[in-house]
Amino acid sequence: MTTLPTHTEKKLGLAIDLDTCVGCQACVTACKGWNDQGYGVPLSDQNPYGADPSGVFLNRVHSYAVQPIDGAAQTINFPRSCLHCDDAPCVTVCPTGASYKRAEDGIVLVNEDACIGCGLCAWACPYGAREMDAAAGVMKKCTLCVDRIYNENLPEEDREPACVRGCPTGARHFGDFADPDSKVSRLSAERGGYALMPDLGTKPVNRYLPPRKKDVPYEASVLAPLLDIKASGFAGWLDRVLGKI
């Protein structure tokens, strides 16, 4: 049924730290790599080595330049994937029941055997989290690596989403937002984690941790003492002579 569960026991999701993300795209490749062989049809590419390549990715990393009113401009890398919304509009629009939200852990999934590839769920998602697979004609989206996180064949430390496991700077955190004492809940509370476009009423689970406050430029000139060197000896003599010419 594509009606949403009234309550989910857990709210599994990601806390994405915009302060530590360096935009290396490791999460993008880790995600693509795992989901080429895991849950559902592989993420296909069309014309991958040609002039106009295209392919399905469940995670995209944007780069933005942000100019504060005072202070230097910042580059902020911004990973974008499914937010596993509590009030997911992509679920209720589905005519076949292929799109659903799990009552036990809140993961939004697509049953590819029932997907007719109408694309309406991708229209309904404000975040662009869903991409149609051009080879299989079914909708693909982040599964929160549902085939890793409960997989007892994997070592314990690997039982987290591929994007989290692959992140070299620890900018991605996986956990249960329904539990106020979980790592992600505490992290989000400490750092002022926020949801994307909350006014659209989707109630996203994932949280973005804003970049920490940066130093302002005049406080930040650590080279200042070094710049005030008085030349002495031969260099000093040369400096004086050249200055007089």
């Binding site: 944007h62 910042q74 902020i76």
Partner: peptide, 15 residues
Amino acid sequence: TGLDRIGTVTVFEQA
């Protein structure tokens, strides 16, 4: 993006 809490946002590089 929620980055308006920091300043004016422009696209630096496409994803």
